Simulated assay, not measured.
Amino acid sequence: MKNMDIPWAQAQLIQFLDLSELRPSTSTRSFRQGNVHPQEHIVASAYVVEQILERVLPRWRSEVPDRRNQSVNRWMQHREAAQRAMTALQRDAEIRERLGEVAPDLSAATMHPWVWEGARALWQSGHYREAVSAAARKVNAETQNKVGFRGVSETRLFQRVFSLEPAKPDMSRLRLMADDGGDTYRNVHRGAMAFAEGCYAGIRNPNSHEDGLPELPEHEALEQLAAFSVLARWVDSATVHQV
């Protein structure tokens, strides 16, 4: 929840809960409940609330029961998720302090956009291993876009873009700092090359090519996403050297 305007988020959740307030059914033949306010007002508020829920409760769609099949009310899942989010925003710091060591939070939503955009849909449905692979593909594609070349990918791509050799007509280079002739310049680019190779050989390839692997625990998948986020930030901030 770092960098979130919590009072604003709380106000949006309260507004949604007010707008989606349930009106008891007057029918003895149906358990369906309507809403006090017009649907168009609720829909507009729900759009904002869904963005808040994705930050506060990323797995709300799978963890909060969806009662639409019971024909109770269209907004029941949203309402319960909003109520949970209100509690989380109000008491998160207290809960973490009371239940154990207060440590820095690592949130997938605050990682580099390439990584989270690639992983989001699969992550929110609990497919963590596939989400990491999707993030890896996104970082690869954005790197190809940056250097303007799609002839190679993944490990070979990063070996070439971070190579210390001068740029060639068929391969641009990425530079993380100016060449001052010193060891730091060489070490930074060799390190980036080795790090990228480790990400794709050690994380992406096993996740994508080994059948029957059990699902990754969420915390392990989060660590793997963080590795690709580091690589994505290096690529995104690098200067392109072309012939």
Results as ranks from 00 to 15, higher is better:
L99E: 15
L99S: 07
L99K: 11
G100E: 06
G100L: 13
G100F: 05
E101Y: 12
V102S: 11
V102N: 14
V102C: 14
V102K: 10
A103D: 10
A103I: 15
P104I: 04
D105A: 08
D105E: 13
S107H: 08
S107I: 04
A108V: 02
A108W: 00
A108T: 00
A108D: 00
A108F: 00
A109P: 05
A109V: 06
M111I: 04
M111Q: 07
H112E: 06
H112Q: 07
P113R: 09
P113E: 08
V115G: 01
G118T: 04
G118Q: 04
G118W: 00
A119L: 04
A119M: 00
A119W: 01
R120C: 05
R120L: 03
R120Q: 12
W123T: 02
S125M: 15
S125G: 07
S125W: 06
G126A: 06
G126C: 06
G126D: 05
H127N: 12
R129I: 03
R129L: 06
R129Q: 05
E130Q: 11
E130G: 07
A131P: 07
V132M: 01
S133V: 07
S133M: 10
A135L: 02
A135S: 04
A136I: 02
K138T: 05
N140A: 04
A141L: 12
A141K: 07
E142V: 03
E142W: 02
E142I: 01
E142Q: 11
E142G: 02
T143I: 12
Q144G: 10
N145Y: 09
N145R: 14
N145Q: 14
K146W: 11
K146H: 08
V147A: 14
V147C: 12
G148E: 11
G148R: 14
G148L: 12
G148N: 14
G148P: 15
F149W: 11
F149T: 15
V152L: 14
S153F: 04
S153I: 06
E154K: 12
T155I: 13
T155P: 04
T155Q: 12
R156M: 12
R156W: 15
F158M: 10
Q159H: 10
Q159C: 10
Q159N: 12
R160M: 14
R160E: 12
R160F: 05
V161D: 13
F162K: 11
S163K: 09
S163E: 11
L164D: 15
L164H: 09
L164S: 12
E165F: 08
P166Q: 13
P166V: 13
P166R: 12
P166D: 11
